[in-house]
Design a protein around this nucleic acid. Structure first.
Lengths: 215, 215
DNA sequence: GTCTATAGATTGATAGAC
DNA sequence: GTCTATCAATCTATAGAC
């Protein structure tokens, strides 16, 4: 088998298992059994378990965050033309959409998106500092840019409050990522099949209003 | 040493370590070393590791949720007097406060609250089904009651949308629980020392507006 | 109730044949 | 590149002396 094929099978298997069992409960043996490759091939292709985890995460996260940053930067660029011109200011909704739309695109394009979306949701809440850092390093520039743009969109709201509200958004988003494909908490009814687009629309309505809430 | 003293030392040590390292990365040896008791005493007092985890969680969660339900039921009782009387309807803010206030009380009363708050935040996102169930079983009746009351407070909003918005609230809340005592994601600046009361006030402002957002 | 000692299983990593 | 075999470390749980 080609090297690339083997690597891909390991990454795909690890992604599936991490999503359903978590990082810490999934052994290399679980992964190689699921991928139907030899146990030693992980070490050959990735070096260590940690390096494999890293590649599983970055393979998906890097392109999505690049899209997010590109959209956010174009909002900032439009705004910088006329900082005093209210009409050129980004709106709260535009900023949130710039974050959410790459997620939507990813979810509706990539068949394994459900798995990664759950990995993303739990990774941001992982107690293991190394795991959390892996996510945060990628996501931090996106959040910083969002905070700046939100300050422009909501000049009457102090920056610390912007940050706290952004955290509310992040928390709601991560929670929805975790729920995707799993059972609802509420009354045992599975709230899905709501399409990802529907979920995102509701998340957007909720968080837009929350961001603009009076002090 | 008395049995109760030993049990308490084990529970306290486990709570500290679960908060900082997570459930899955903390071994019984870590716990007994931190508690300064013998490794075999865990089995003697709790039976299995899983039973210990369960007691660590329930010791804190049960009384807080009892308070939440009591406050929510009193809102429902007041409303049931005059279902057509708008003035007797619970407000969104009252419902959210009924959920949040017992958390505040717990946080400002109990010295180890910070640890448990982080445990709570990660437990609701844990990929291990047993862990998640442990939390969900306790929290489910609270969420169901909240959904009912929110439907009364917001009669124009369809029940599925109420559920989705409640999930936004839950996600934001859990995220804040996780952040308590840890570093901020944003620009490396630690957003704390904001008091828990301040955090809750902002969470409340954000989520009240989100709940009442137009369709 | 507390302790030592250990059973029995599982883990990540690697050496070396092919 | 793939495989078998194995090492060294770690884990939970428990038997049995005190």
């Amino acid at each position: 088998m080609s090297a690339e094929e083997t690597k891909k099978r390991i990454l795909d298997a690890a992604e599936r298992l991490f999503a359903s069992q978590g990082f810490h409960n999934t052994s290399l043996r679980d992964i190689t059994r699921e991928a139907r490759v030899n146990i030693a091939s992980v070490n050959y292709h990735f070096g260590t378990r940690e390096a494999l985890v890293r590649e599983v995460v970055l393979r998906r996260l890097v392109p999505v965050n690049r899209d997010r940053l590109r959209l956010l930067e174009s909002l900032r660029h439009a705004a910088s033309r006329g900082p005093d011109d209210i009409s050129s200011r980004p709106t709260v909704r535009e900023i949130l959409v710039a974050f959410l739309e790459p997620s939507i695109k990813f979810i509706s394009t990539e068949p394994a998106a459900n798995d990664f979306v759950r990995i993303m949701g739990q990774g941001m809440a992982d107690p293991d500092e190394n795991i959390r850092k892996l996510f945060m390093e990628q996501v931090r520039p996106v959040f910083n840019t969002m905070a700046e743009l939100l300050s422009m969109a909501l000049p009457s709201i102090p920056r610390p409050v912007i940050h706290m509200r952004l955290h509310c958004f992040i928390g709601a988003f991560a929670h929805w990522m975790r729920l995707m494909g799993s059972d609802s908490l509420l009354s045992g009814t599975n709230m899905f099949p709501n399409s990802p687009e529907e979920v995102m629309k509701e998340l957007l309505n909720f968080c837009e209003a929350g961001m603009e809430a009076p002090l």
